[in-house]
């Protein structure tokens, strides 16, 4: 996978929509905000032409317990999945897509979901653990995939 094969801008735009803005938060501390953190991951990937951030998931601000709009988070997560290369056995925890997905899971589900490199297996797993959100996520992902010309 390369930065060129990932639409970093598309993910960044989707994440931007989840931002509560300074007006609501009072201040903007991206290191302590799941949305700001994910924006920074995307900015880093673009600025450094990097697809890996060594130990990047260790920096996910797990103490951010704010409630974000579910629809925006689902939209972002589906966009992240669209950009994911479904690397199967070659899945890397340090991958920027993986880190962004984990941060969004934290914001949406309050916990991380198992991911083994397969989007299909992931969506099924999410649907088992979170039936309602899982169904919406799968539907959004399939819509995006279809629009991108990538099958059903």
């Amino acid at each position: 996978m390369t930065v060129r094969s990932v639409n970093v801008e598309a993910i960044r735009r989707a994440v931007d929509k989840c931002c509560k803005t300074v007006e609501e938060c009072g201040t903007c501390d991206k290191a302590r905000c799941l949305i700001g953190f994910t924006q920074t991951v995307m900015d880093y990937a673009r600025a450094k032409n990097a697809v890996r951030i060594p130990r990047g998931h260790n920096f996910i601000p797990e103490d951010d317990l704010r409630l974000y709009y579910q629809d925006d988070l689902l939209e972002t997560l589906s966009e992240i999945l669209l950009q994911c290369q479904s690397c199967q056995d070659n899945h890397e925890e340090d991958c920027v897509i993986n880190i962004a997905r984990r941060a969004m899971e934290r914001a949406l589900f309050g916990e991380y979901m198992p991911f083994s490199g397969s989007i299909a297996a992931y969506l099924l797993q999410v649907a088992r653990q979170e039936p309602s959100l899982g169904e919406k996520l799968a539907s959004l992902y399939q819509q995006k995939k279809k629009a991108a010309g990538g099958g059903p």
Binding site: D29, K30, F37, T40, D43, Y44, P54, G56, F59
Partner: peptide
């Protein structure tokens, strides 16, 4: 040693 990454520095730069 543990792989160096300037990501943390990059992240902290974005914080006011």
């Amino acid at each position: 040693q543990e792989e160096e990454s300037d990501f943390l520095q990059f992240l902290n730069q974005t914080t006011p």
